[in-house]
């Protein structure tokens, strides 16, 4: 074996990741200082894109909306934890339930968006039909902000609950059986056991899910593109704004400034994640 052998094995991966990940991640910062459209040569404009960005109401609205989507995280965590605890206490049929809960997870977002767009349709949708049976007037699921945010969050919950349930099951599987048995012998009820023993031990899993769910929420795009295409930009999210600027108006420099803001936000989430992991030892 030559000394160079390990590098040969590593080379293709490094070339791909450097070319398509690391370099673009640096380029985005550079682009954000340019007046850059696909059609003409680029010029350096310093902080101009950021000055425009911070004065753009659509930027602030989409940023706010993206943060609002993070509110889905605690709901998702609660629901998926409850599901995981229930599934775990089942003697039979766990596989069947896991399969059912996983169908939404593997469904392409475009198709999920299409289905829910019909369910939420104002006059013909089945959601308003069920509400009408309860004599509740039509809800403007897809046409009235901020109801639109809630509708899209419901889709996120529908798609995500099964996924996070699996991660909770993975976390629960790491807890030694003796710990649980000991607490039950000590006379703890199932609720005491859950709240005083299991949940504290699940802290790493809770942090992990909190971070990935929040990061996913702030990057939301496809659901919005499919479900509320006609909504004003101020009712959409940060990536919708980036897409509009870069690929509909071809203002790549300005779009890159949006990208940099998004990058800084997701990096700070990762930083929090790393800090919390270090803290636990």
């Amino acid at each position: 074996m030559s000394r160079r052998t390990p590098y040969f094995f590593l080379l293709p991966a490094i070339v791909f990741l450097a070319w398509f990940m690391v370099v673009p991640a640096l380029q985005i910062f550079y682009y954000s200082f340019l007046n850059y459209s696909v059609f003409s040569a680029s010029t350096f404009v310093g902080m101009e894109n950021y000055r425009r960005l911070f004065a753009d109401v659509n930027f602030w609205w989409t940023l706010l909306n993206s943060f609002l989507f993070i509110l889905v995280t605690p709901v998702l965590m609660f629901l998926s934890l409850v599901l995981a605890l229930c599934v775990r206490n089942l003697q039979r049929g766990t596989k069947l339930f896991r399969t059912f809960y996983f169908l939404p997870v593997i469904t392409p977002i475009v198709i999920a968006g299409i289905i829910w767009r019909w369910i939420f349709a104002e006059d013909t949708g089945i959601a308003n039909y069920f509400l009408s049976l309860l004599s509740i007037p039509n809800v403007h699921w897809l046409t009235e902000y901020p109801t639109t945010i809630i509708s899209i969050m419901l889709v996120t919950i529908w798609r995500g609950a099964g996924y996070y349930m699996m991660i909770f099951l993975a976390g629960l599987a790491l807890i030694p059986k003796e710990v649980e048995e000991a607490s039950l012998i000590d006379g703890a009820t199932i609720f005491q056991q859950t709240f005083h023993i299991l949940i504290p031990l699940l802290k790493p899993t809770l942090i992990f899910i909190f971070v990935i769910s929040s990061t996913a929420a702030i990057k939301i795009f496809t659901e919005i593109y499919i479900m509320i295409p006609g909504a004003p930009m101020a009712n959409k999210a940060l990536v919708s704004f980036l897409y509009q600027q870069a690929f509909e108006r071809f203002d790549l420099g300005y779009g890159s400034a949006v990208g940099v803001v998004l990058f800084l936000i997701t990096l700070s989430f990762s930083y929090v994640n790393i800090k919390l992991i270090e803290q636990r030892g």
Binding site: S256, F263, T266, S270
Partner: peptide, 21 residues
């Protein structure tokens, strides 16, 4: 470390430079 770090780069952030690439 480099490979793990790339997991922190969101697709959505780099689509503009990737498009020009």
């Amino acid at each position: 470390f480099l490979i793990i770090s790339t997991m922190m780069i969101p697709k959505e952030v780099i689509i503009i430079p990737l498009y020009t690439t």
